[in-house]
Design a protein around this nucleic acid. Structure first.
Lengths: 365, 365
DNA sequence: CGATAGACTGCAATCGATTGCAAGAACGCT
DNA sequence: AGCGTTCTTGCAATCGATTGCAGTCTATCG
């Protein structure tokens, strides 16, 4: 059915080995035969069989990316970046979804290595350290976003301490003194690191840490809802909330909406990691960008480096940090300034009273 | 490095062929040797090499899913479903992102077939019909969500005419007579079909179609924004907008927010396809669910069927439709009923005047 | 007790490439 | 012309499995 190297060789009246050498461009064939074979191969529509080649060379030209899910916008971006980069090098990306579940991660890892992937970028659950460590002997691995403390794998991390610091400082500079923090579980690196950045910014500003303003929880929207309620119900509620647990954002938005809390007038809101709709939201939501695109690019760089180095790509560096940056939009307001009194333009066919509107206006003047 | 079948055979003092037969369970070996080999293989940690096996059997145990992007929530769901289903059958999913770009689609298809995938589920751009047709001779293919008219490939489609009909009828039943429609490009199947469903519902209700209420455009948020503005600026603006172009939803939401239009009090809003945050949004957004989960499951069913049938899985059926369904949440209101006057509970630390709130309250009583 | 079917097992070819080794061709040099 | 290089090319082994064919061994039957 399909054209094999043998067919090409026969058509050109040379041996398979010559054909192979000519087509792979080893420089071991004469200029003339090389061109002739290239032409014939093209005419016949020959396409090398990666499976056969892989059997011999031990390579598959497959690189896997194992993430927790595709719901998280960061992972989407990363997947697209990785796919684009790899494609340019004629690798195929194997995108796998591990669901942040150790068992599933373990199964997937096994399958992947069976398939003789040439490289792996993984967001580890942290529960399969030994396995990862063992696999790393066979295939280049780079960890992404999370570190697996049980291994000494090269890891590309977001600079969470800095990101949380930047965000918190931004709020402080806007005059906020009581800043609520909703953050991830404290048994994860990112959870701990973001808390530490928050604390550092407070300390630098001479604000004493108030633990009632801190809510840590699982990576689900409910965490945001309960955390937000808890914060709002305090006798002295915060004037700003920093949602440093990405998945919790939805919960926070819902609670503020339910309670008719105007953002940023009643409450400033700063979130961690972007979502595609954040800038379409009214008010557009300010964020700390963890640099998903940069993270992915760096991870690919490091992986390729290791793949080329064939087992000794140890440059000594074990951990890379990608800087976070603040993206100011409209959800945080200067605290000491009076509540904005810009002109509302109700030229829309608004039949309802002014008492309800579906969103506050942009905070920018 | 890794354990091969040969190693297992040697350890068991049998030939490779016997080892192979015992481990693959062909029933051609004695019970005893089979068990013995299974045990030894396990002890040695033997894992068959899919590449070598694939070379001989012509199978790769790789099934590809080619979608446009991962931003679309439907595609996310589909990817997760496909991955889960395939995994249970020990296939690996190759998730590829085509970007709705014909060139990229074409390249990707070539690569995939080179890798000897065992099956393919593809959301076609519609511009690579000939290629798809040719590939279909070598590998089972099922089209998903979109049809490629240049082929006669088996296709699993959402029932867009019905979905749009259901949605429109819902709005009509709520008393709406002027219903704006923001829909996709009319050179796509889904764009045309959704428009037709909308028109049918109007006709059935005896409402004459008003083309000024219809806005068709590209699959980007901007389409929603311009469409929404256009509709709102009409001398007789609609009382409800049906956003049947998924990507346009963000634009519509932004414009309504900017203009302080309360949903559903001032304007009812119905969208097509879910997004994870729709039910967290205030008001929770009613949608027509295209059944992404069902679509993906059916596509997998059909693909597996064809893969097993080995080239003659032609059951005569060429097109499958998966029913859409309406999910009522809080963004559509009964038109003739008075604007809701439920008690607002501003127990939140609202320092701002009542004139602004970040969202309207839930519409449900 | 010999013949024969049936159950296991092993040999060797095969899938489609890559690659070490050696033979043959072409060329330059003295 | 003779000899040694350098280029090209082909032969054959190899990667790690699967599988047709044939041979061995046991058991069963006449």
């Amino acid at each position: 059915m399909t054209v094999t190297l043998k067919d090409v060789a026969q058509a050109a009246r040379v041996s398979v080995s010559t054909a192979s050498r000519a087509l792979t461009g080893t420089g071991l064939t004469s200029e003339r035969t090389q061109q002739r074979l290239t032409r014939i191969a093209r005419e016949l529509g020959y396409r090398p069989n990666p499976i056969a080649r892989g059997l011999k060379t031990g390579q598959s030209r497959l690189v896997a990316l194992l993430v927790h899910n595709l719901t998280n916008a960061s992972f989407q971006v990363m997947a697209e970046v990785v796919q684009a980069r790899l494609k340019a090098l004629s690798y195929q990306m194997l995108l796998c979804i591990g669901g942040d579940d150790p068992q599933q991660e373990s199964d997937t890892l096994t399958t992947l290595v069976d398939h003789r992937i040439d490289g792996l970028i993984v967001v580890p659950t942290g529960k399969n350290g030994p396995q990862l460590k063992a696999l790393a002997k066979d295939v280049p691995i780079v960890c992404l976003v999370r570190r697996d403390d049980a291994t000494d794998l090269e890891t590309v991390l977001a600079d969470d301490p800095q990101g949380a610091y930047l965000g918190t400082r931004h709020l402080i500079e806007l005059g906020h003194k009581r800043i609520g923090l909703i953050v991830g579980r404290q048994d994860t690196t990112s959870g701990r690191e973001r808390l530490s950045g928050y604390v550092r910014a407070l300390r630098e500003a001479g604000i004493t840490r108030d633990d009632t303003l801190i809510h840590a929880g699982h990576f689900v929207p409910e965490t945001g809802a309960t955390g937000c309620r808890k914060l709002l119900d305090l006798s002295r509620p915060p004037s700003a909330i920093f949602v440093a647990n990405h998945e919790a954002t939805l919960g926070v938005l819902r609670v503020t909406a339910e309670r008719n809390i105007a953002i940023p007038d009643d409450l400033s809101l700063l979130c961690y990691e972007d979502m595609p709709w954040f800038e379409w939201h009214r008010p557009a939501i300010s964020i700390v960008d963890n640099g998903a695109r940069d993270l992915a690019n760096l991870a690919v760089d490091r992986l390729l480096h290791r793949m080329e180095a064939k087992g000794n790509g140890n440059d000594g560096v074990r951990e890379y940090r990608v800087g976070a940056r603040l993206i100011k939009r409209d959800s945080c307001r200067q605290l000491d300034a009076p509540v904005s009194t810009r002109s509302t333009k109700p030229k829309s066919p608004s039949k309802s009273s002014a008492a309800k509107s579906s969103a506050s206006k942009p905070a920018k003047v």
